[in-house]
Write a protein that binds this DNA or RNA. Structure first.
Lengths: 145, 145
DNA sequence: ATTATATTTGTCGCATGCGATTTAATCGCG
DNA sequence: CGCGATTAAATCGCATGCGACAAATATAAT
């Protein structure tokens, strides 16, 4: 077994634990999100909208790193649940503006306890979590700007 | 804006950068994997098999943290590409053994350069990458054992 | 031996992700 | 003004992920 093939070992990879951790976190969120009728990507979308309402789909996608081919169907589901409204911009008929309904705004209060619950269940020190977050953003920033 | 709602900000979340980084890595791998006709989850599956051949689907799933509802269709695609063979175990007809074909074994050489290419493109220090990997595995170990 | 239980894989339905293409609206330039 | 280029969203096709359930086989209990 030479050095090159050692790099192919699952334990040596960085890509694999990130992939597996991402899915694990989704599963950890699920019971909390079921209670407010959101999927995980829908929750991330609502996080963006709770920060800044009335966003064009493109701008929303810039923040969450998703394009319209993923967002359009997802947003139609959120609209079907009466959490958001989609309407064409009057200034530019190409754009679609996403706005929270009252139901969507009210959901923020119910969602506000979820991050703490998750942090508790992760059982890592605050330093470790901040370290992870910092490293992740550093990697993201290299490619997503 | 009280403290609780601050926790809902995207920049404060740990979940979001992990989710986004995971997808970013998949996109970074894609041009390399296109060259050897593998998708990213198919590549991870092959990583496992290059380490240990002739695995039952369940054991393969234990290593990659996927269940048969995901693996069965994926493995059928790898079989269609002649990279693996699926055959019922003679000892226990419930189990299906996954084995590499010669083509599947040969692919390891072509794949062996990919991890280095990726590490280069990530442009992080070795210390940072090891730190990330360590933290990821620590989180995974809490839940996936 | 027969039946109940457990194990292993497979199927189904739904919701993403994403590359490629299409459609509609706007912009820019001569 | 007219028209090609650009932009924003939607659509399409394919490959995951995963909960819920079904089917086949093996094991255990009586």
């Amino acid at each position: 077994m030479d050095n090159r093939s050692d790099l192919l070992h699952l334990q040596e990879q960085l890509c694999f634990p990130i992939y597996a951790t991402s899915r694990m976190i989704t599963r950890l969120y699920q019971p909390h999100l079921d209670a407010i009728d959101l999927t995980y990507p829908q929750y991330l979308t609502m996080l963006v909208l709770w920060e800044k309402d009335n966003l064009k789909i493109g701008d929303l996608g810039d923040r969450i790193y998703l394009k319209t081919n993923t967002l359009t169907p997802l947003l139609k589901k959120l609209e079907a649940k009466k959490m958001i409204v989609r309407e064409r911009s009057k200034e530019d008929e190409r754009s679609v503006i996403i706005s929270l309904t009252q139901k969507g705004k009210d959901l923020k209060q119910k969602a506000s306890v979820i991050p703490l619950r998750l942090l508790e269940s992760l059982d890592m020190t605050k330093e470790e979590l901040i370290q992870m977050r910092t490293l992740m953003w550093k990697m993201l920033d290299k490619f997503e700007i």
